[in-house]
């Protein structure tokens, strides 16, 4: 479908959370069963737009995420379409509620988490969720999405409301770069080639997609043609596209604003191990906690920047034929 985002996005820094909040508000009339759950953090998650536009469907749970997460199961059980909103790190304290009361019951309940990863910035290590993709990915039946830019976030917001089954979706706190044009489309479960190339494939999600494109530009100056794949759906992973990229480019780099354990990199490696094993390099936070700083400073410090991605690509290429 064509994006409705251009009309919505762009007034306040183009963060993914704002794109989500505006898109949700815009979709409310089309989805009359939609209710939005908040734990006193609407200004942070972007759903302050919804609170203003549809106050009768905005449900306040106070600072109590476990109760909120499980209550979403009850709301879904009586025919409503609940969207649970909080920070990614606070979703972690309600993982078990999402597991039992949402996923095990196969509820149509959506969890949308803002403030994932080092993108949180100044709030520091306590607030930077680097484990959420791993935790939610391991729950049977849970779909996991991390859109790359504001346009895609708006499209993904519609897609999850139309989806059958529980979804965990990351947004983002900081101003995000535009990766896609207004004609972008989005489909849950499909990766997309953002930039062509046959020497190596960089598979990225979230804020790392823009950095991966930047890395590919740097590599191109040295005559290395890197393909970039936006893997916005981490679960179920697009195994067909991964296999094709592995066959055609012979080396893979994954890039995510998440621990290198259990996230996108893990999902890609698990998939390729079964279809077309090849050298894989992992760009992500290397099993440590974050720290305060601006997102771009942190990206450099923790090895998530475009330079780190380009270096990983060179390493992956060098390993070709040595497996």
């Amino acid at each position: 479908m064509a994006s409705e985002a251009p009309a919505l996005i762009g007034s306040s820094g183009d963060s993914l959370r704002e794109a989500f909040g505006k898109a949700l508000s815009g979709l409310a009339d089309e989805f009359p069963k939609l209710v939005v759950l908040d734990a006193d953090i609407a200004g942070g998650t972007g759903v302050h737009h919804f609170r203003k536009s549809h106050p009768e469907r905005f449900l306040q749970f106070g600072i109590a995420e476990q109760n909120m997460m499980a209550a979403a199961g009850g709301l879904a059980a009586v025919g409503l379409l609940p969207v649970v909103t909080t920070f990614a790190v606070f979703c972690l304290r309600a993982v078990e509620q999402a597991r039992l009361s949402l996923a095990y019951c196969k509820r149509n309940a959506m969890i949308v988490a803002s403030h994932p990863g080092l993108d949180v910035g100044p709030d520091g290590g306590s607030a930077q969720a680097l484990e959420d993709i791993a935790a939610f990915r391991a729950i049977p039946g849970m779909t996991v999405i991390s859109p790359a830019d504001p346009i895609e976030t708006a499209l993904a917001t519609r897609a999850i409301l139309e989806f059958d089954g529980p979804v965990y979706m990351r947004t983002g706190r900081s101003p995000a770069r535009r990766v896609f044009g207004d004609d972008h489309t989005f489909e849950i479960g499909k990766g997309r080639i953002v930039r062509g190339g046959n020497d190596v494939t960089i598979v990225a999600c979230g804020v790392e997609v823009a950095r991966a494109v930047e890395a590919a530009q740097v590599l191109a100056e040295d005559g290395i043609h890197a393909r970039v794949v936006n893997m916005a759906t981490i679960k179920p992973i697009d195994a067909v596209l991964l296999e094709r990229c592995a066959k055609e480019t012979g080396a893979i780099v994954t890039a995510e604003d998440h621990n290198i354990l259990g996230g996108l990199g893990g999902a890609v490696a698990e998939s390729l191990a079964l279809t077309y094993p090849c050298p894989i390099e992992f760009v992500g936070v290397k099993d440590v906690f974050g720290a305060s700083g601006e997102p771009e400073e942190l990206a450099v410090m923790f090895g998530l920047g475009s330079k780190s991605i380009a270096e990983a690509a060179r390493r992956a290429i060098a390993r070709k034929g040595r497996m």
Binding site: L59, A70, A71, G74, A77, V78, E96, L100, S101
Partner: peptide, 14 residues
Amino acid sequence: GQGFSVALGMAMGL
């Protein structure tokens, strides 16, 4: 604890 929260979510939704 979870059933209680789910139940209150049902009550709220109804």
